[in-house]
Amino acid sequence: MTQTEKLTWRAFAPEDFERAAALLGRTWLPEFDGAAQRAASQIELAHYLSQATWSLVAERAGEILGVVLLAERGQEAPEGAGWTELETRLTRAAEKDPQLAEAVRTEMDGVREEAELEREYAAGDPAGVDAAVKLLIVSPDAKRLGIGGRLFSAALDHLRESGAAGYHLLTDDSCDVGFYEHKGLTQAMRRRSGAYWPGVDPERDEFYVYVYDQLL
């Protein structure tokens, strides 16, 4: 554990879950109301944690300012079964309320669509299949602190040290893909989305999901 400019950098811990999910919801799901945002963000975060083999959190004064999660080929997520069980339990609870169920379905349909694209990408066995950045999220309150870049660099340092030949990530038009292009990633796959995305009119708007990758 190291501290720089009052920031603490450490691995993700189970007690981070509520705060990290709240950050995910506030940043990625602003269109959802409070209860729906909480349900969808917790289920999505549990889904990513169930695959995560390495993690890093940036924290300041008890506030989580950023999280990055990696999934590495051939490795098991240390707490994967527990996070999968939590995802299932939270999903079943949300299904009892029509409003929550609809919010969760909307969010996870996009996640599943990206996962299908990822499977097609992996079928070609590119070098980037060695690892995936499953989550990279930074608080809007920390945009000028360089936290996203530092989390991303730490993840790549870990992958290089582990001997990965490359890595990939999934993203979509709601994210700043320019950040990844600036970091040297290239677009490996693109597909027009068939899922519903809040704020996007599928009849009028073209909304794409992507795979970006990079050799190490």
Results as ranks from 00 to 15, higher is better:
residue 84 T to G: 15
residue 84 T to K: 08
residue 86 L to Q: 11
residue 87 E to F: 06
residue 87 E to T: 04
residue 87 E to H: 10
residue 88 T to W: 11
residue 88 T to M: 11
residue 90 L to Q: 08
residue 90 L to P: 14
residue 91 T to P: 03
residue 91 T to G: 04
residue 92 R to N: 09
residue 92 R to G: 05
residue 92 R to D: 13
residue 93 A to R: 14
residue 93 A to L: 11
residue 94 A to Y: 09
residue 94 A to P: 03
residue 95 E to Q: 10
residue 96 K to F: 09
residue 96 K to C: 13
residue 96 K to W: 09
residue 96 K to S: 13
residue 97 D to S: 07
residue 98 P to R: 07
residue 98 P to G: 13
residue 99 Q to W: 13
residue 99 Q to R: 10
residue 99 Q to A: 09
residue 99 Q to P: 01
residue 100 L to G: 01
residue 100 L to K: 04
residue 101 A to D: 09
residue 101 A to Q: 12
residue 101 A to I: 05
residue 102 E to M: 14
residue 103 A to S: 08
residue 104 V to C: 07
residue 105 R to Q: 09
residue 105 R to Y: 10
residue 106 T to F: 12
residue 106 T to I: 07
residue 108 M to Y: 09
residue 108 M to S: 07
residue 109 D to W: 06
residue 109 D to A: 10
residue 109 D to F: 07
residue 110 G to V: 04
residue 111 V to G: 00
residue 111 V to K: 03
residue 111 V to E: 02
residue 111 V to S: 00
residue 111 V to I: 08
residue 112 R to P: 11
residue 112 R to E: 11
residue 116 E to C: 06
residue 116 E to F: 14
residue 117 L to S: 03
residue 117 L to K: 02
residue 117 L to F: 03
residue 118 E to V: 03
residue 118 E to H: 07
residue 118 E to L: 12
residue 119 R to G: 02
residue 119 R to K: 05
residue 120 E to H: 06
residue 122 A to G: 00
residue 123 A to P: 00
residue 123 A to C: 02
residue 124 G to F: 10
residue 124 G to Y: 09
residue 125 D to G: 01
residue 126 P to E: 03
residue 126 P to Q: 03
residue 126 P to K: 07
residue 127 A to S: 05
residue 127 A to I: 02
residue 128 G to Q: 05
residue 129 V to A: 13
residue 130 D to Y: 01
residue 130 D to K: 01
residue 131 A to D: 05
residue 131 A to K: 01
residue 132 A to K: 07
residue 132 A to M: 09
residue 132 A to F: 11
residue 133 V to E: 02
residue 135 L to M: 08
residue 135 L to T: 03
residue 136 L to E: 00
residue 137 I to Q: 05
residue 138 V to R: 00
residue 139 S to D: 06
residue 139 S to Q: 07
residue 139 S to R: 08
